[in-house]
Design a protein around this nucleic acid. Sequence first.
RNA 1: GGGCGGAUACUCAAGCGGCCAACGAGGGCAGACUGUAAAUCUGCUGGUUUCACCUACGGGGGUUCGAAUCCCUCUCCGCCCA
Length: 435
Amino acid sequence: MAPHLAHGTATTALLDELSWRGMLHQTTSPDLAAHLASGVRVGYAGFDPTSDSLTIGNFMGIKLLAHLQRAGHKPIVVSGGGTGLIGDPSGKSAERQLLTRELAEHNARSQQRIFDRFLDFSGPRAAVIRNNIDWLESMSYLDMLRDIGKHFSVNQMIARDSVASRLEGREQGISYTEFSYMILQAYDFLHLHRADGCTIQLGGSDQFGNIVSGIDLIRRLEQHESFGATCPLVTTSDGQKIGKTEKGAIWLTADRTSPYRFLQYWLNTSDADAVKFLRWFTFLESDAIEALAHALATEPGKREAQKTLAAEMTRMTHGATELARAQATSEALFSGLVKSLDAAQIAEIAADLPSSSVATTALSQGISIVDFITGTSCAASKREAREFVQNGAVSINGEKVTLECTVRAEHALPGGVILIRRGKKAYHAVRLQSS
RNA sequence: GGGCGGAUACUCAAGCGGCCAACGAGGGCAGACUGUAAAUCUGCUGGUUUCACCUACGGGGGUUCGAAUCCCUCUCCGCCCA
């Protein structure tokens, strides 16, 4: 096969992939395609150490790197252990609280465990993780001003959206610290370019300005061309940020969001978003997604698209074993057939739900249903508890209850657990305690 | 420093001496219909020992039979003059 044909294939690999998935918002140069086609390239994306884990809002950045790697290039994950100390003003309307050094480092390190699941850290195109504290810390202020700052025009810097918006509103200014952020991120790119031959930076659309800064810096100091590509800001069909729920964000680690909750989140995806999410978040091929789109259109009640989305995401993030457990929990709870489960299964379910405990002795005399559910995560007060029961929203172990119902020790399932359900989706496990 | 105006429940926002646990909107929760979706309709959205009481309209104090509503003061915010 002719070499130029092979190049042609490589060209289409990354950008076309991102494009049909709706993940390509902007590129810094039309020459990026040719650049990608002409060899194995090194690209990076940065992650803020604002927390010790990452949410599905950060997932896009990871996925961009994964696509890059799958297209035959080499990804670098940059933990912002250094830049995190400064704070990126992009997309923020107010000055941020500074992280402590310890926290930024701890978070950066803690986030690194997540990337194993999505990137390949072995082989010739092994992903690597870098922490920008390693090169930012040793950079002296004078060197930064003389060698790097000299190449930035304040006139351009204040024209940036992220800065301009903070200059307009009088009550929300911007500190010199955050104003300088873009210089640090630009320097990151320069450093990676020098140290790792990195020529591409990927990120969300709000990062475009920062990416361009880096490209300019590399051009001035190294006379090399480098590139950037951004993905659109992903939102739900009603304009909500993805992964934000009333109960908090959806995280990519089990210590923050249980696999069961994670599965449920995707399972509840609305029809309007299902296909879009399949393209954005999963690695399923185009035909597979088209088939699911067809299934959704013809048999929406079956929710094939949502089920596949949820399964794919949970498997990728938590592994096949956790997926199977989460699915089993999910099926048992929603079918109401919890009585058929054995003690081990119930224990697993209870572990995934908010829970509380009650003394067996108290239960032996019987507790009214209202008192029983008050104070659990299903009802905040007696008034509310009464209302829910009257509405027929509450069931115990899968059976609807009325106000007259009294909960007794006999209600306990194998393993000494009573399952409360309020409405369709709120569950609570009450453990019996013998002493 | 001086002069105004404002602070009400998750958010916005009425109320301006008793009929105020406080209009309305949004949000949230539940029910019905469905598909653990959306839309729609209905109900709820301070607490309790629920036809009553308690706690609440920025904090504190006062006037009054009675205050979110009037007065004083403190804190914070906005506008205007220096």
